[in-house]
Each structure stands twice: as C-alpha cells, then as structure tokens.
C-alpha cells in the first residue's frame, strides 16, 4: 500500500533472491547480464533459471553498455507526484549489444533529441548507497 507521503518519493527497487546480483553490479558501475552456459541465451531480467532452456548454469558478465533505441515515448503527464518535476522525460526500450532488451530513461540531453535506432550508452546513476539505476545517454 502506497501512503501519501511515499507517493512524493520515487519508488526504489527492493532487490530479491533473483535480482540481488544485478543491483550489486550496478552499485559497482556494471550492468550484469546472465549468460547461460548450456544454451548460450543471454538475459537482462534476472532469474535463477534460463528462460530459454530452463538450465541453472548461469553466469553474470558485465554488458558493454552499448545499445540502440527500439522504441520510446516521451512522458508529459507523470505517473504520480514523484515524477512531475522530471517531465517531459523519454522512456526508452533499448536493444543491448549482447541481445537483451532493457527499459530505462534518457539522461544527459533533451527528450526531443531521441530518435529511433539512436545509439546510446549506459550511465550508472546512484540513487542511494544500495541502489544505482541503469540509465542511458546518447553514445
């Protein structure tokens, strides 16, 4: 349940058993992808099981951080008061060089500069001592 007070704050991820490594990695400036040793599948959304073959032989490797914009939408009406000051901001669907698609927001430039197929680069943005968010700037 979200209280009125909480609504003024941006939600902060609460790492769980599946995602702890991802958030640890981001704290150290790395976006960790899971590589399956059994079938070669690479996944961003963290789970202790390969989504393609069901194997559990997964290892974390840092992504290059390079990607390309598959689609985007510039938010003018924020989902709640916490994001109001940020509008307009561009939400991005990015195809990472390693394959997986990731959702994030654009940073370091104006949202109107964002175009399809634009090359972008990872920016690790510290939120607090525990959490760093993966955001993207123009490459």
């Amino acid at each position: 349940m979200i209280s009125s007070e909480d609504a003024m704050k941006k939600p902060v991820p609460a790492p769980d058993a599946d995602s702890a490594a991802l958030w640890h990695g981001l704290r150290d400036g790395m976006l960790l992808l899971q590589h399956c040793a059994d079938c070669g599948h690479v996944q961003y959304y963290q789970q202790a099981m390969c989504r393609q073959c069901g194997g559990e032989n997964l290892s974390h490797r840092p992504a290059s951080g390079r990607g390309k914009i598959h689609s985007f939408s510039v938010v003018h009406r924020a989902p709640g008061p916490a994001f109001k000051a940020d509008t307009p901001y561009a939400v991005l669907l990015i195809d990472l060089e390693e394959g997986p698609r990731i959702i994030s927001t654009y940073t370091g430039g104006k949202p109107e500069d964002v175009v399809f197929d634009m090359e972008v680069m990872l920016v690790c943005e510290k939120v607090n001592d525990e959490i760093t968010l993966p955001r993207f700037r123009k490459a």
């Binding site: 941006k10 939600p11 902060v12 991820p13 609460a14 790492p15 769980d16 995602s19 959304y45 938010v75 009406r77 924020a78 989902p79 709640g80 916490a82 994001f83 940020d86 901001y89 939400v91 959702i103 994030s104 927001t105 939120v127 959490i131 968010l133 955001r135």
Partner: peptide, 10 residues
C-alpha cells in the same frame, strides 16, 4: 517495482 517503476513508467 524493480525494473519499471523506478523510472516512472505509467
């Protein structure tokens, strides 16, 4: 709550 909402995605 981990992968989408921290970015403000309605």
């Amino acid at each position: 709550q981990q992968y989408e909402m921290p970015f403000g995605i309605p």
